[in-house]
Design a protein around this nucleic acid. Structure first.
Lengths: 240, 240
DNA sequence: CGTACATTTGAAAATGGTCAATCACAGTGG
DNA sequence: CCACTGTGATTGACCATTTTCAAATGTACG
């Protein structure tokens, strides 16, 4: 059965860069064809918004490459970033009415989007996918709870050190999540303001911490949007 | 087929107080009998520990009544409470190796526990249950992300007001989650220290905020472990 | 009735936020 | 090619809030 949409090759999913790490990893090739038929690739420019907070939840997606942010507006107009989404991560709110956060691309990105109704139906019909989604959601919950620690108990220096270390791991070229091959030089996908929004700090505090870590020789800042980790273990000590 | 364990009546699940709200709500009576056969009730005393952080994840459970806390130890010995668990909530980490947090009863509690391996197998065989669990996990993730806002962006007064309002809703007698029938008088299941651990504040700050809200007439404190909400809308304003 | 523990209160110190000024740099147009 | 401009980033001075440290006060329970 040939189910691919007109603008996609039939083996689109098979060739997908995040195939093995994303939630579709456990599907067989029939299921993959079917999933292929309800999804499509979408390219996002840096700064482009994919979902708006409070809107009807119309889309879900897999991230293929790029970094996106999940964020919400506070009463006083400040923004809080609820999380960052990296390649192979799942994004959106299946089985719900509204999107509880806005989604915006921090870098140019490619995502594999599904109309939510299609995705929900597919998931209900394919327990293996739903199981993968459950495992991923459970992991995401664990990760989010750990992030709570950072927000509530760490001081500015600890937050920044933790943030930089996590970035260097998540941005490692092969997506492998460990410190061994973490990037020592990487391009920051966030502005100072956005880093503040992630860490619950003001832009001034973020800037002061950058300056401090740089002057102490733990990091280098070749340019505003580039970071070099010079003393990883010292940085790990700061992250406590 | 009679599958109930020796120490449980056959219709144990059917009579469960949280039957409709918990993840088992969608099961038919055959499935329920089977679930019944792998689970058992367990009564916990206040302060009793059900799971230890970092241990092999051996148990999962549904909360029938009582309040439990999920918490983790920080490097400096402080505790951070990652979340509170109320009746009908699911608890534990299915499909994972280790329990990412400790679980302790804040009040006397009754839970319905399953050996994790049994539960995992049952879930994989019963997509309806797994679907319920997925929906619940997604909701819990949303809730946790909103809590991040509280931790990172609210001041002590806002945190306390938010905390008290949430408590009064979650402790409403019928488990109905809305402000209309929220409890105006309730017993606090947490010490000042534990409240601090939930909100990311010191015990002194918690105490000062209690004193302040009381002296301003928004709440009453008949005893250390009881709270009366006197001016709900004013309290809501403080929560921003 | 006394002891242990939780809570409250007070004063000092530290941390991060706010406000304001300056700096750096990319893009634009003369 | 270079000054100009706008945006984002940095820096400084001051201030508000919360933490820390210390002491006093309750309260429960043997």
């Amino acid at each position: 059965m040939e189910l691919s949409t007109s603008d996609l090759p039939a083996n689109f999913c098979q060739a997908c860069a995040v195939r093995n790490r994303a939630i579709c990893g456990d599907l067989d090739s029939n299921e993959l064809d079917l999933l292929n038929s309800i999804g499509r690739r979408r390219r996002l420019e840096q700064g482009e918004q994919l979902l708006w907070e409070g809107d009807e939840a119309v889309l879900v997606a897999n991230v293929i490459d790029g970094v996106l942010k999940l964020s919400t507006q506070l009463a006083d107009g400040k923004e809080q970033i609820l999380g960052l989404v990296y390649p192979s991560d799942f994004l959106g709110r299946p089985f719900g009415d509204t999107t509880p956060y806005g989604v915006e691309a921090l870098t140019d990105a490619n995502v594999c989007v599904f109309r939510r109704a299609d995705f929900d139906r597919f998931a209900r019909d394919h327990p293996r996918l739903e199981h993968k989604l459950l495992e991923r959601t459970l992991s995401e919950l664990d990760r989010t709870r750990r992030w709570m620690l950072l927000l509530s108990r760490m001081n500015a220096e600890q937050k920044m050190a933790t943030f930089l270390l996590e970035m260097s791991e998540r941005l490692a070229p092969d997506g492998c999540l460990n410190a061994v091959n973490a990037a020592s030089v990487f391009a920051l996908p966030l502005s100072r303001q956005q880093i503040g929004d992630v860490l619950g700090l003001t832009i001034e505090t973020v800037s002061r911490q950058f300056t401090k870590l740089k002057s102490e020789g733990l990091i280098g800042l070749p340019s505003r949007r580039e970071v070099t980790i010079l003393e990883r273990s010292a940085l790990e000590n700061r992250a406590v």
